[in-house]
Computed example of a mutant assay.
Amino acid sequence: MNRGAMRPQFASAPSGVTMVSRHIEAGVHRLSRAPYHRIMVHKSAATRSYCNQVGRYFVRLAGDIDLVPAGEEGGFEAETPFDTIEIVLQPALMERVAAELGGKALVARLDTRHLLRDQRIEHLARALQSDLDTGAPSGPLFADSIGAALAVRLLGLDEPDIDRTSRDGTGRLSDTQLKRVLEYIEAALHEPLSIQRLSRVAGASSSHLRTWFKVAMGVTLHRYVLRRRVERARVLLQQGDLSTSEVAELTGFAHQSHLAHWMRREIGQTPRDLRRAQLPR
């Protein structure tokens, strides 16, 4: 099994938090069970990988966060090399913070998370990275305060106020959120796209994403995805290199009839119509 080349760049902080920068090669990787909590912050451009836990492909973008609680394991297959920051939080730190919160948050609530978007976690990770990259001049107190802040945020991930507003606080999708959702849809048209999956990409609740997306694009999220799939199918059919069944599979349709149904509704033509139009007269 290819474990991947890993290049540590940052030293450990003498506290309950540690950070290391890793370079992961393409291939199959296994995350063994560990006695500590791991936060991975993706640093590279769009990277496609297959997650063994959920049996599905994901496209990770810079800033995407994966959380693996202590005692949990995982695995993935990366199609291309990528860089990531790994932050380690010791259970003792998490337990201390949970106790200080008066029992309102429990470490036991931590779940494995993928494609998490959280501005506060990103900000704290950048602050810790900057300090450790320059030799940790701020000392252990700074690292410990960052670790405690990360623990508070992780313990509050399921609080209802996390996505009441968009990232810019206006009650709509920010330009960055909308761009991420649109880019993600384009990269994953051939895969099943659920509202839960896209809401994680946007960093918003499912209900908010549905409402805010329609306001931003003038069409429902479901209809937008269908239109993009139909347009991708139209281009592939006109190129003439693939069969209709292959085009249906590559554009996320269940079968040829499903593709034909939506093409007829969206552009008034079926795959057969497009094929006929390509024939020499």
Rank of each mutant, 00 (worst) to 15 (best):
N2G: 07
A5M: 02
Q9T: 13
S15W: 03
M19L: 10
M19H: 08
L31S: 06
L31M: 10
L31P: 04
S32K: 15
Y36S: 15
I39S: 09
V41R: 07
V41C: 05
S44W: 03
S44G: 02
R48P: 00
V54D: 13
G55L: 08
Y57T: 04
F58E: 14
G63L: 01
D66G: 06
E72N: 08
E73W: 13
E79S: 11
E79C: 09
E79F: 09
P81E: 02
F82A: 04
Q90C: 13
G102R: 12
G103T: 07
A105P: 01
L110P: 07
D111C: 12
R113Y: 11
H114S: 08
D118L: 07
E122L: 13
A125K: 09
S130V: 10
S138L: 15
P140V: 05
S145C: 09
I146P: 00
G147Q: 00
L150Q: 06
L154P: 01
D158V: 00
P160Y: 00
P160H: 01
P160C: 03
I162D: 11
S166V: 00
G169T: 08
G171W: 04
Q177K: 10
L178G: 11
K179E: 15
A187W: 15
A187T: 15
L189C: 04
H190E: 15
R197Q: 12
V201D: 05
S206F: 08
R210T: 09
F213C: 03
A216C: 07
M217F: 08
L221T: 07
H222P: 01
V225T: 06
R228L: 07
E231V: 10
R232I: 06
L237S: 08
L237N: 10
Q238T: 13
S243K: 15
T244P: 02
A248I: 02
H255P: 09
R264V: 05
R264G: 06
I267R: 00
L274P: 05
L279C: 03
